[in-house]
Design a protein around this nucleic acid. Structure first.
Lengths: 114, 114
DNA sequence: TGACATACCTAGAGCCCCGAGGTATATTAT
DNA sequence: ATAATATACCTCGGGGCTCTAGGTATGTCA
C-alpha cells in the first residue's frame, strides 16, 4: 500500500494542514472548524489532534507560538511553514489519486441492488 | 470519526466486496486484480487480505468453496452473499460521503504554491 | 532437480486513532 | 460566593488494521 497507508490515516494530517493553509489556528479551534465544515463527519478527538500537531512541529511542517486571547486565556497557535505547504500539496495529490482509483474500482462493481 | 474510521482502513473491505460483486474470485486473484485495476496503487499483501476474507466469511458477507483449476491446483473461491451486497452498498455510501467531505475541506484551503 | 510462481495460512510488530483521564483558567448559573 | 460548564492544553494505554516475515504445498520450467 505504501503512500496510501499514510493517506488513509494521513487524511487527518492532510485535513489539518489544509485548515492551517488558510491561517494560523489553535488546536481547539481546528477541532471545531473541522467538525463544522464537515457537517459533523470529521469530529477529531483531542487525543488524536494534539499528538499530530506535535508530530508536525517536530517535522518542521508547522511552528507554534502562544498568544493571549482577549479573554485573557492563553492559546497555542500553529502556523504552517513552507515545508508544511509542500507536504500539503504532496498529500493533496496523493489523496486525489487515491480517491479516483477507489472510485474507478467502485465504478466497475455491480450496480446497487433494488 | 465513527463510521469513517471503518472507512479509512475499511476501504480495503469496500474494495474487496466490490471486486466480488462482479463474480466469484479467489484470494490470489483478487490481489492481482486490485493491483492491476488500480495501476499498482492498491497492492494488498496476503497477510492483509486473507484475514479480511476470513472475517467477512465469519460475518456472513461472503461464502467460500474450493474448486480445482485446470492446472490441477486447488483454489478457494469466495462468493458475495446478499448480506455482503447490502454491506457493500452501505460502505459505498459512506465512502462517497467521506470523500466528498474531504474534497470540500480541500477546496477551502489555499491554492497550490507556484 | 532446483528455482520460481502460484496459492493458501498465521503470528507478531507497528502505526494510527480514540477513550479516558489529568491540569488549568474563564464564564455562567445558582 | 461557588459550583458547574466551557475552553484549552496534555499524555497514556488499548484496540483495530496493515504489513513483515515466516510457514506449507503444489505446479511449471530450465
Amino acid at each position: 500500500m505504501k503512500a496510501d497507508k499514510s493517506l488513509l490515516s494521513g487524511s487527518t494530517t492532510l485535513l489539518v494542514l489544509s485548515l492551517l493553509s488558510t491561517g494560523d489556528k489553535y488546536g481547539y479551534e481546528m477541532i471545531a472548524e473541522l467538525d463544522a465544515r464537515s457537517d459533523h463527519t470529521f469530529t477529531l478527538k483531542e487525543g488524536t489532534l494534539y499528538p499530530i500537531l506535535h508530530g508536525l512541529e517536530r517535522e518542521g511542517a508547522v511552528k507554534s507560538y502562544t498568544k493571549e486571547a482577549d479573554s485573557g486565556r492563553t492559546r497555542k497557535y500553529y502556523r504552517i511553514t513552507k515545508k508544511g505547504l509542500r507536504a500539503l500539496e504532496e498529500q493533496k495529490k496523493e489523496w486525489v489519486d487515491f480517491s479516483q482509483k477507489v472510485n474507478a474500482i467502485l465504478a466497475g462493481c455491480a450496480p446497487a441492488l433494488a
